[in-house]
């Protein structure tokens, strides 16, 4: 066994141990947990529809409270389009 394979197996084992332990430490699916309960979630659930006026709370969060995230997402898309067009420009006649 080469050293590279050995290092890969060690890394895989470490990642697998982390994943298994984090899966065991998750709180039960669909149940309310008092400890892992940020106040921000309850504020958004209570006030999104009144403050933004949107029925769909997800859109209200994405376009109003977290507008900067959507701006960054749009920038990523613009960069992807520019990269693809620059990359394939040479192949065109």
């Amino acid at each position: 066994m080469s050293g590279r394979n050995f290092a890969a197996i060690i890394f895989f084992a470490i990642v697998a141990v982390f994943l298994v332990f984090s899966a065991l430490m998750m709180h039960p699916f669909g149940e309310f947990d008092e400890e892992h309960y940020p106040e921000m979630d309850q504020y958004i659930i209570d006030n999104t529809q009144n403050e933004t006026g949107a029925d769909n709370g997800v859109t209200g969060v994405v376009f109003d409270y977290r507008g900067f995230d959507t701006l960054g997402e749009a920038t990523v898309l613009f960069t992807a389009v520019a990269g693809v067009i620059i990359l394939f420009r040479r192949l065109k006649k």
Binding site: Q49, N50, T52, G53, A54, D55, T59, G60, F63, D64, T70, A74
Partner: peptide, 22 residues
């Protein structure tokens, strides 16, 4: 307008316009 549970399309301020732009 502020529509909470009304399914009124004339609501939500700039969110529909931003939806169209995006």
């Amino acid at each position: 307008e502020i529509g909470k549970g009304l399914a009124n399309i004339n609501t939500a301020g700039i969110i529909p316009l931003m939806n169209f732009a995006v």
